[in-house]
Design a protein around this nucleic acid. Structure first.
Lengths: 199, 199
DNA sequence: CGTTATTTGGAGCTTAAACAACAAATGACG
DNA sequence: CGTCATTTGTTGTTTAAGCTCCAAATAACG
Protein backbone atom coordinates (compact mmCIF):
# COMPACT_ATOMS: atom_id res chain seq x y z
CA UNK A 1 0.00 0.00 0.00
CA UNK A 2 2.22 2.80 -1.17
CA UNK A 3 1.27 6.44 -1.05
CA UNK A 4 2.05 6.69 -4.70
CA UNK A 5 -1.13 7.69 -6.45
CA UNK A 6 -0.50 7.32 -10.14
CA UNK A 7 -2.14 10.24 -11.84
CA UNK A 8 -1.87 8.44 -15.12
CA UNK A 9 -3.87 5.39 -14.13
CA UNK A 10 -5.99 5.24 -17.24
CA UNK A 11 -8.19 3.25 -19.50
CA UNK A 12 -6.30 1.45 -22.24
CA UNK A 13 -8.52 3.11 -24.82
CA UNK A 14 -7.55 6.56 -23.56
CA UNK A 15 -3.85 5.82 -23.61
CA UNK A 16 -4.14 4.34 -27.07
CA UNK A 17 -6.06 7.32 -28.39
CA UNK A 18 -3.38 9.63 -27.07
CA UNK A 19 -0.62 7.57 -28.62
CA UNK A 20 -2.37 7.33 -31.97
CA UNK A 21 -3.10 11.03 -32.08
CA UNK A 22 0.41 12.14 -31.34
CA UNK A 23 1.90 9.63 -33.74
CA UNK A 24 -0.47 10.88 -36.43
CA UNK A 25 0.41 14.50 -35.78
CA UNK A 26 4.08 13.67 -35.95
CA UNK A 27 3.80 11.87 -39.24
CA UNK A 28 1.78 14.67 -40.76
CA UNK A 29 4.25 17.27 -39.54
CA UNK A 30 7.10 15.62 -41.38
CA UNK A 31 5.30 16.13 -44.68
CA UNK A 32 3.41 19.38 -44.28
CA UNK A 33 3.54 22.44 -42.09
CA UNK A 34 1.57 22.46 -38.87
CA UNK A 35 -0.59 25.39 -39.80
CA UNK A 36 -2.05 23.62 -42.81
CA UNK A 37 -2.96 20.47 -40.89
CA UNK A 38 -6.63 20.23 -39.91
CA UNK A 39 -8.07 18.36 -36.97
CA UNK A 40 -9.86 16.18 -39.49
CA UNK A 41 -6.56 15.26 -41.10
CA UNK A 42 -5.12 14.21 -37.76
CA UNK A 43 -8.24 12.26 -36.83
CA UNK A 44 -8.29 10.45 -40.18
CA UNK A 45 -4.65 9.53 -39.95
CA UNK A 46 -4.99 8.30 -36.38
CA UNK A 47 -8.20 6.40 -37.17
CA UNK A 48 -9.98 8.42 -34.51
CA UNK A 49 -13.30 10.17 -34.89
CA UNK A 50 -12.95 13.91 -34.99
CA UNK A 51 -15.43 14.31 -32.14
CA UNK A 52 -13.25 12.07 -30.02
CA UNK A 53 -10.32 14.34 -30.71
CA UNK A 54 -12.19 17.13 -28.99
CA UNK A 55 -12.93 14.87 -26.03
CA UNK A 56 -9.21 14.88 -25.34
CA UNK A 57 -7.73 18.11 -26.65
CA UNK A 58 -9.03 21.64 -27.00
CA UNK A 59 -7.45 22.02 -30.41
CA UNK A 60 -4.44 20.94 -32.39
CA UNK A 61 -2.18 23.23 -30.41
CA UNK A 62 -3.04 21.38 -27.21
CA UNK A 63 -2.19 18.14 -28.96
CA UNK A 64 1.12 19.55 -30.13
CA UNK A 65 1.95 20.60 -26.57
CA UNK A 66 1.16 17.14 -25.35
CA UNK A 67 2.96 15.38 -28.18
CA UNK A 68 6.16 17.34 -27.67
CA UNK A 69 6.13 16.83 -23.92
CA UNK A 70 5.52 13.09 -24.14
CA UNK A 71 7.96 12.51 -26.95
CA UNK A 72 10.67 14.34 -25.10
CA UNK A 73 9.91 12.47 -21.90
CA UNK A 74 10.09 9.19 -23.75
CA UNK A 75 13.39 10.11 -25.33
CA UNK A 76 14.73 11.05 -21.95
CA UNK A 77 13.35 7.91 -20.33
CA UNK A 78 15.19 5.82 -22.89
CA UNK A 79 18.52 7.49 -22.17
CA UNK A 80 18.43 7.84 -18.40
CA UNK A 81 18.66 4.77 -16.12
CA UNK A 82 15.50 3.58 -14.40
CA UNK A 83 15.36 5.30 -11.01
CA UNK A 84 17.88 7.97 -11.91
CA UNK A 85 19.36 10.18 -9.23
CA UNK A 86 21.32 13.40 -9.20
CA UNK A 87 24.77 12.55 -10.49
CA UNK A 88 27.10 14.31 -12.87
CA UNK A 89 26.68 11.46 -15.34
CA UNK A 90 22.93 11.79 -15.40
CA UNK A 91 23.10 15.53 -15.66
CA UNK A 92 25.41 15.15 -18.63
CA UNK A 93 22.94 12.76 -20.22
CA UNK A 94 20.13 15.22 -19.61
CA UNK A 95 22.08 17.99 -21.27
CA UNK A 96 23.10 15.92 -24.22
CA UNK A 97 19.65 14.48 -24.78
CA UNK A 98 18.05 17.91 -24.67
CA UNK A 99 20.48 19.27 -27.19
CA UNK A 100 20.13 16.35 -29.53
CA UNK A 101 16.35 16.43 -29.26
CA UNK A 102 16.22 20.04 -30.32
CA UNK A 103 18.59 19.35 -33.17
CA UNK A 104 16.45 16.46 -34.38
CA UNK A 105 13.35 18.62 -34.08
CA UNK A 106 14.92 21.26 -36.23
CA UNK A 107 15.56 18.72 -38.96
CA UNK A 108 12.25 16.89 -38.62
CA UNK A 109 9.76 19.71 -39.09
CA UNK A 110 9.05 22.24 -41.80
CA UNK A 111 10.85 25.61 -41.91
CA UNK A 112 7.65 27.55 -41.27
CA UNK A 113 7.03 25.58 -38.10
CA UNK A 114 9.95 27.26 -36.40
CA UNK A 115 7.46 29.78 -35.06
CA UNK A 116 6.21 26.94 -32.87
CA UNK A 117 9.41 26.86 -30.87
CA UNK A 118 7.98 28.86 -27.97
CA UNK A 119 5.47 26.05 -27.40
CA UNK A 120 8.24 23.52 -27.53
CA UNK A 121 10.16 25.54 -25.01
CA UNK A 122 7.31 25.47 -22.51
CA UNK A 123 6.84 21.73 -22.66
CA UNK A 124 10.50 20.81 -22.58
CA UNK A 125 11.38 23.01 -19.65
CA UNK A 126 8.42 21.48 -17.80
CA UNK A 127 9.72 17.98 -18.48
CA UNK A 128 13.26 18.85 -17.47
CA UNK A 129 11.96 20.64 -14.40
CA UNK A 130 10.07 17.53 -13.28
CA UNK A 131 13.15 15.38 -13.46
CA UNK A 132 15.32 17.91 -11.69
CA UNK A 133 12.73 18.29 -8.96
CA UNK A 134 12.78 14.56 -8.37
CA UNK A 135 16.55 14.55 -8.28
CA UNK A 136 16.76 17.48 -5.87
CA UNK A 137 14.16 15.98 -3.57
CA UNK A 138 16.30 12.88 -3.37
CA UNK A 139 19.20 14.88 -1.98
CA UNK A 140 19.87 15.81 1.62
CA UNK A 141 20.03 19.54 1.13
CA UNK A 142 22.21 21.59 3.46
CA UNK A 143 19.51 24.20 4.01
CA UNK A 144 15.86 24.35 3.12
CA UNK A 145 15.56 25.23 -0.55
CA UNK A 146 12.62 25.51 -2.84
CA UNK A 147 13.31 22.48 -5.02
CA UNK A 148 10.80 23.57 -7.66
CA UNK A 149 12.39 26.99 -7.97
CA UNK A 150 15.89 25.65 -8.39
CA UNK A 151 14.62 23.05 -10.83
CA UNK A 152 12.84 25.67 -12.90
CA UNK A 153 15.83 27.95 -13.14
CA UNK A 154 18.11 25.10 -14.05
CA UNK A 155 15.73 23.69 -16.64
CA UNK A 156 15.58 27.05 -18.38
CA UNK A 157 19.33 27.29 -18.33
CA UNK A 158 19.64 23.84 -19.87
CA UNK A 159 17.04 24.56 -22.51
CA UNK A 160 18.68 27.86 -23.35
CA UNK A 161 22.04 26.21 -23.80
CA UNK A 162 20.51 23.52 -25.99
CA UNK A 163 18.79 26.08 -28.20
CA UNK A 164 22.01 28.03 -28.53
CA UNK A 165 23.90 24.91 -29.52
CA UNK A 166 21.28 23.54 -31.90
CA UNK A 167 20.95 26.94 -33.59
CA UNK A 168 24.64 27.08 -34.47
CA UNK A 169 25.18 27.03 -38.23
CA UNK A 170 27.62 24.20 -37.69
CA UNK A 171 27.16 22.76 -34.18
CA UNK A 172 30.16 21.07 -32.64
CA UNK A 173 29.84 17.56 -31.21
CA UNK A 174 27.31 16.70 -28.47
CA UNK A 175 30.26 15.77 -26.27
CA UNK A 176 31.82 19.18 -26.48
CA UNK A 177 28.41 20.78 -25.92
CA UNK A 178 28.07 18.81 -22.70
CA UNK A 179 31.66 19.55 -21.70
CA UNK A 180 31.07 23.26 -22.10
CA UNK A 181 27.75 23.46 -20.25
CA UNK A 182 27.94 20.81 -17.56
CA UNK A 183 30.42 22.62 -15.28
CA UNK A 184 28.24 25.72 -15.13
CA UNK A 185 25.08 23.82 -14.32
CA UNK A 186 26.88 21.66 -11.82
CA UNK A 187 28.39 24.67 -10.09
CA UNK A 188 25.03 26.32 -9.64
CA UNK A 189 23.52 23.15 -8.24
CA UNK A 190 26.49 22.21 -6.13
CA UNK A 191 25.59 24.84 -3.54
CA UNK A 192 22.36 23.14 -2.54
CA UNK A 193 23.96 19.80 -2.01
CA UNK A 194 26.27 19.20 0.91
CA UNK A 195 27.26 15.81 -0.42
CA UNK A 196 29.86 16.00 -3.19
CA UNK A 197 28.58 14.57 -6.45
CA UNK A 198 30.23 11.65 -8.08
CA UNK A 199 32.40 12.64 -10.96
CA UNK B 1 -30.62 5.07 -52.51
CA UNK B 2 -28.25 2.90 -54.42
CA UNK B 3 -28.43 -0.86 -54.43
CA UNK B 4 -24.79 -1.02 -53.50
CA UNK B 5 -24.54 -2.48 -50.06
CA UNK B 6 -20.94 -2.29 -49.00
CA UNK B 7 -20.15 -5.46 -47.10
CA UNK B 8 -17.22 -3.76 -45.52
CA UNK B 9 -19.14 -0.77 -44.28
CA UNK B 10 -17.69 -0.78 -40.82
CA UNK B 11 -17.23 1.12 -37.67
CA UNK B 12 -13.96 3.00 -37.49
CA UNK B 13 -13.17 1.25 -34.22
CA UNK B 14 -13.46 -2.15 -35.85
CA UNK B 15 -11.22 -1.25 -38.75
CA UNK B 16 -8.69 0.28 -36.40
CA UNK B 17 -8.67 -2.76 -34.14
CA UNK B 18 -8.01 -4.98 -37.14
CA UNK B 19 -5.20 -2.76 -38.33
CA UNK B 20 -3.60 -2.55 -34.90
CA UNK B 21 -3.80 -6.29 -34.37
CA UNK B 22 -2.23 -7.23 -37.64
CA UNK B 23 0.47 -4.62 -37.30
CA UNK B 24 1.23 -5.94 -33.84
CA UNK B 25 1.42 -9.52 -35.04
CA UNK B 26 3.72 -8.51 -37.83
CA UNK B 27 6.10 -6.66 -35.56
CA UNK B 28 6.22 -9.53 -33.11
CA UNK B 29 6.84 -12.05 -35.88
CA UNK B 30 9.96 -10.23 -36.99
CA UNK B 31 11.54 -10.77 -33.58
CA UNK B 32 10.20 -14.11 -32.41
CA UNK B 33 8.67 -17.19 -33.94
CA UNK B 34 4.92 -17.36 -34.33
CA UNK B 35 4.50 -20.37 -32.13
CA UNK B 36 5.94 -18.61 -29.09
CA UNK B 37 3.74 -15.54 -29.44
CA UNK B 38 0.75 -15.46 -27.10
CA UNK B 39 -2.55 -13.71 -27.68
CA UNK B 40 -1.72 -11.57 -24.67
CA UNK B 41 1.51 -10.46 -26.34
CA UNK B 42 -0.35 -9.42 -29.45
CA UNK B 43 -3.04 -7.65 -27.45
CA UNK B 44 -0.50 -5.76 -25.36
CA UNK B 45 1.47 -4.69 -28.37
CA UNK B 46 -1.64 -3.54 -30.21
CA UNK B 47 -3.00 -1.79 -27.12
CA UNK B 48 -6.12 -3.92 -27.35
CA UNK B 49 -7.77 -5.83 -24.55
CA UNK B 50 -7.31 -9.57 -24.87
CA UNK B 51 -11.06 -10.15 -24.66
CA UNK B 52 -11.50 -7.83 -27.61
CA UNK B 53 -9.10 -9.95 -29.60
CA UNK B 54 -11.49 -12.85 -29.23
CA UNK B 55 -14.39 -10.67 -30.37
CA UNK B 56 -12.69 -10.54 -33.76
CA UNK B 57 -10.62 -13.67 -34.22
CA UNK B 58 -10.97 -17.26 -33.10
CA UNK B 59 -7.29 -17.52 -32.31
CA UNK B 60 -3.93 -16.24 -33.45
CA UNK B 61 -4.04 -18.45 -36.53
CA UNK B 62 -7.18 -16.70 -37.71
CA UNK B 63 -5.41 -13.39 -37.23
CA UNK B 64 -2.43 -14.63 -39.20
CA UNK B 65 -4.70 -15.68 -42.06
CA UNK B 66 -6.30 -12.29 -42.06
CA UNK B 67 -3.03 -10.41 -41.70
CA UNK B 68 -1.41 -12.21 -44.63
CA UNK B 69 -4.42 -11.74 -46.87
CA UNK B 70 -4.80 -8.05 -46.13
CA UNK B 71 -1.11 -7.30 -46.34
CA UNK B 72 -0.85 -9.02 -49.68
CA UNK B 73 -3.93 -7.23 -50.97
CA UNK B 74 -2.48 -3.93 -49.88
CA UNK B 75 0.81 -4.64 -51.55
CA UNK B 76 -1.01 -5.57 -54.72
CA UNK B 77 -3.26 -2.53 -54.51
CA UNK B 78 -0.21 -0.31 -54.32
CA UNK B 79 1.32 -1.81 -57.45
CA UNK B 80 -1.70 -2.23 -59.70
CA UNK B 81 -3.47 0.82 -61.17
CA UNK B 82 -6.82 1.82 -59.70
CA UNK B 83 -9.51 0.02 -61.71
CA UNK B 84 -7.15 -2.48 -63.25
CA UNK B 85 -8.25 -4.67 -66.15
CA UNK B 86 -6.92 -7.77 -67.82
CA UNK B 87 -3.82 -6.73 -69.72
CA UNK B 88 -0.44 -8.33 -70.16
CA UNK B 89 1.11 -5.46 -68.23
CA UNK B 90 -1.13 -5.97 -65.23
CA UNK B 91 -0.63 -9.72 -65.34
CA UNK B 92 3.10 -9.15 -65.33
CA UNK B 93 2.73 -6.87 -62.32
CA UNK B 94 0.64 -9.49 -60.56
CA UNK B 95 3.28 -12.13 -61.17
CA UNK B 96 6.13 -9.96 -60.11
CA UNK B 97 4.42 -8.70 -56.98
CA UNK B 98 3.50 -12.21 -55.90
CA UNK B 99 7.05 -13.42 -56.33
CA UNK B 100 8.54 -10.48 -54.51
CA UNK B 101 6.03 -10.76 -51.70
CA UNK B 102 6.94 -14.37 -51.07
CA UNK B 103 10.60 -13.53 -51.18
CA UNK B 104 10.14 -10.74 -48.65
CA UNK B 105 8.10 -13.07 -46.46
CA UNK B 106 10.88 -15.60 -46.47
CA UNK B 107 13.31 -12.98 -45.25
CA UNK B 108 10.96 -11.33 -42.78
CA UNK B 109 9.93 -14.26 -40.60
CA UNK B 110 11.77 -16.79 -38.49
CA UNK B 111 13.08 -20.08 -39.96
CA UNK B 112 10.73 -22.18 -37.86
CA UNK B 113 7.74 -20.28 -39.22
CA UNK B 114 8.23 -21.82 -42.63
CA UNK B 115 5.78 -24.47 -41.56
CA UNK B 116 3.17 -21.73 -41.80
CA UNK B 117 3.51 -21.51 -45.56
CA UNK B 118 0.42 -23.61 -46.26
CA UNK B 119 -1.67 -20.95 -44.53
CA UNK B 120 0.00 -18.28 -46.57
CA UNK B 121 -0.74 -20.24 -49.68
CA UNK B 122 -4.46 -20.35 -48.98
CA UNK B 123 -4.78 -16.63 -48.39
CA UNK B 124 -2.66 -15.53 -51.30
CA UNK B 125 -4.34 -17.71 -53.88
CA UNK B 126 -7.66 -16.39 -52.62
CA UNK B 127 -6.49 -12.82 -53.11
CA UNK B 128 -5.08 -13.52 -56.56
CA UNK B 129 -8.23 -15.39 -57.48
CA UNK B 130 -10.42 -12.44 -56.58
CA UNK B 131 -8.48 -10.11 -58.82
CA UNK B 132 -8.41 -12.53 -61.72
CA UNK B 133 -12.15 -13.11 -61.37
CA UNK B 134 -12.75 -9.38 -61.66
CA UNK B 135 -10.51 -9.19 -64.69
CA UNK B 136 -12.14 -12.13 -66.43
CA UNK B 137 -15.62 -10.82 -65.76
CA UNK B 138 -14.61 -7.59 -67.44
CA UNK B 139 -13.84 -9.46 -70.65
CA UNK B 140 -16.23 -10.37 -73.42
CA UNK B 141 -15.59 -14.09 -73.41
CA UNK B 142 -16.05 -16.02 -76.64
CA UNK B 143 -17.96 -18.79 -74.92
CA UNK B 144 -19.47 -19.18 -71.52
CA UNK B 145 -16.73 -19.98 -69.02
CA UNK B 146 -16.70 -20.40 -65.30
CA UNK B 147 -14.72 -17.31 -64.38
CA UNK B 148 -14.12 -18.48 -60.83
CA UNK B 149 -12.73 -21.81 -62.00
CA UNK B 150 -10.33 -20.28 -64.45
CA UNK B 151 -9.30 -17.72 -61.87
CA UNK B 152 -8.64 -20.41 -59.28
CA UNK B 153 -6.50 -22.54 -61.57
CA UNK B 154 -4.54 -19.55 -62.71
CA UNK B 155 -4.02 -18.23 -59.20
CA UNK B 156 -2.57 -21.58 -58.13
CA UNK B 157 -0.29 -21.61 -61.13
CA UNK B 158 0.93 -18.13 -60.31
CA UNK B 159 1.46 -18.95 -56.67
CA UNK B 160 3.28 -22.14 -57.54
CA UNK B 161 5.61 -20.31 -59.87
CA UNK B 162 6.28 -17.67 -57.23
CA UNK B 163 7.09 -20.29 -54.60
CA UNK B 164 9.40 -22.07 -57.02
CA UNK B 165 11.21 -18.85 -57.80
CA UNK B 166 11.45 -17.58 -54.22
CA UNK B 167 12.72 -20.98 -53.06
CA UNK B 168 15.68 -20.92 -55.41
CA UNK B 169 18.97 -20.77 -53.53
CA UNK B 170 19.94 -17.84 -55.69
CA UNK B 171 16.83 -16.48 -57.42
CA UNK B 172 17.36 -14.63 -60.67
CA UNK B 173 15.89 -11.16 -61.18
CA UNK B 174 12.14 -10.48 -60.86
CA UNK B 175 12.18 -9.42 -64.50
CA UNK B 176 13.43 -12.74 -65.70
CA UNK B 177 10.97 -14.53 -63.42
CA UNK B 178 8.13 -12.61 -65.06
CA UNK B 179 9.58 -13.18 -68.51
CA UNK B 180 9.69 -16.91 -67.95
CA UNK B 181 6.20 -17.30 -66.49
CA UNK B 182 4.09 -14.69 -68.19
CA UNK B 183 3.90 -16.41 -71.61
CA UNK B 184 2.58 -19.63 -70.09
CA UNK B 185 -0.09 -17.93 -68.03
CA UNK B 186 -1.05 -15.70 -70.93
CA UNK B 187 -1.35 -18.63 -73.28
CA UNK B 188 -3.70 -20.49 -70.98
CA UNK B 189 -5.86 -17.42 -70.53
CA UNK B 190 -5.75 -16.32 -74.15
CA UNK B 191 -8.21 -19.01 -75.13
CA UNK B 192 -11.07 -17.56 -73.11
CA UNK B 193 -10.65 -14.11 -74.56
CA UNK B 194 -11.57 -13.40 -78.17
CA UNK B 195 -10.02 -9.96 -78.01
CA UNK B 196 -6.23 -10.02 -78.32
CA UNK B 197 -4.53 -8.53 -75.27
CA UNK B 198 -2.38 -5.46 -75.54
CA UNK B 199 1.27 -6.28 -75.59
C1' DC C 1 -18.73 42.90 -50.75
C1' DG C 2 -22.31 39.01 -50.15
C1' DT C 3 -22.42 34.04 -51.18
C1' DT C 4 -20.50 29.58 -51.00
C1' DA C 5 -17.38 25.99 -48.84
C1' DT C 6 -14.52 24.40 -45.01
C1' DT C 7 -13.40 23.87 -40.66
C1' DT C 8 -14.58 24.05 -36.01
C1' DG C 9 -16.64 22.91 -31.67
C1' DG C 10 -20.47 20.34 -29.38
C1' DA C 11 -24.76 17.29 -27.98
C1' DG C 12 -27.58 13.00 -27.96
C1' DC C 13 -27.82 8.35 -28.90
C1' DT C 14 -25.61 3.92 -29.98
C1' DT C 15 -22.03 0.56 -29.89
C1' DA C 16 -17.33 -1.44 -29.64
C1' DA C 17 -14.16 -2.31 -26.42
C1' DA C 18 -12.26 -2.14 -21.64
C1' DC C 19 -12.32 -4.43 -17.40
C1' DA C 20 -12.78 -8.10 -14.10
C1' DA C 21 -13.49 -12.60 -12.96
C1' DC C 22 -14.00 -17.24 -14.14
C1' DA C 23 -13.27 -22.32 -15.45
C1' DA C 24 -10.87 -25.14 -18.53
C1' DA C 25 -6.72 -26.46 -21.00
C1' DT C 26 -1.89 -26.71 -21.44
C1' DG C 27 2.75 -27.01 -19.67
C1' DA C 28 6.84 -26.96 -16.69
C1' DC C 29 9.03 -29.01 -12.76
C1' DG C 30 10.36 -31.72 -8.74
C1' DC D 1 2.57 -38.52 -10.83
C1' DG D 2 0.54 -34.32 -8.63
C1' DT D 3 0.92 -29.10 -8.17
C1' DC D 4 1.71 -24.71 -9.40
C1' DA D 5 1.83 -21.33 -13.16
C1' DT D 6 0.46 -19.83 -17.84
C1' DT D 7 -2.35 -19.41 -21.35
C1' DT D 8 -6.80 -19.81 -23.20
C1' DG D 9 -11.59 -18.94 -24.04
C1' DT D 10 -15.96 -16.88 -22.23
C1' DT D 11 -19.28 -13.91 -19.80
C1' DG D 12 -21.50 -9.67 -17.52
C1' DT D 13 -21.06 -4.76 -16.57
C1' DT D 14 -19.25 -0.24 -17.39
C1' DT D 15 -17.43 3.29 -20.29
C1' DA D 16 -14.79 5.45 -24.15
C1' DA D 17 -15.51 6.50 -28.51
C1' DG D 18 -18.08 6.20 -32.80
C1' DC D 19 -21.76 8.31 -35.57
C1' DT D 20 -25.21 11.83 -36.89
C1' DC D 21 -26.60 16.34 -36.87
C1' DC D 22 -26.22 21.15 -35.87
C1' DA D 23 -24.69 26.04 -35.39
C1' DA D 24 -21.01 29.19 -35.35
C1' DA D 25 -16.62 30.78 -37.07
C1' DT D 26 -13.15 31.10 -41.05
C1' DA D 27 -11.67 30.93 -45.53
C1' DA D 28 -12.35 31.19 -50.48
C1' DC D 29 -14.20 33.16 -54.31
C1' DG D 30 -16.78 35.58 -58.04
Amino acid sequence: MSLIHREKTQDLRVRRTHVLLRKALWELMTEQEFQSITVQDIADHAMINRATFYDHFMDKYALLDYAIREQFKETLGAKLPEGSTFTAENLALLLRTTGEYLLALRHGCKPKDHQLLPMVQTQITIAIGEILTDWIKGLRTSRSVDAALVATMTSWAIYGAAVYWSQQPDPDSPESFVAQTLPTILASLQQISNAPLSR
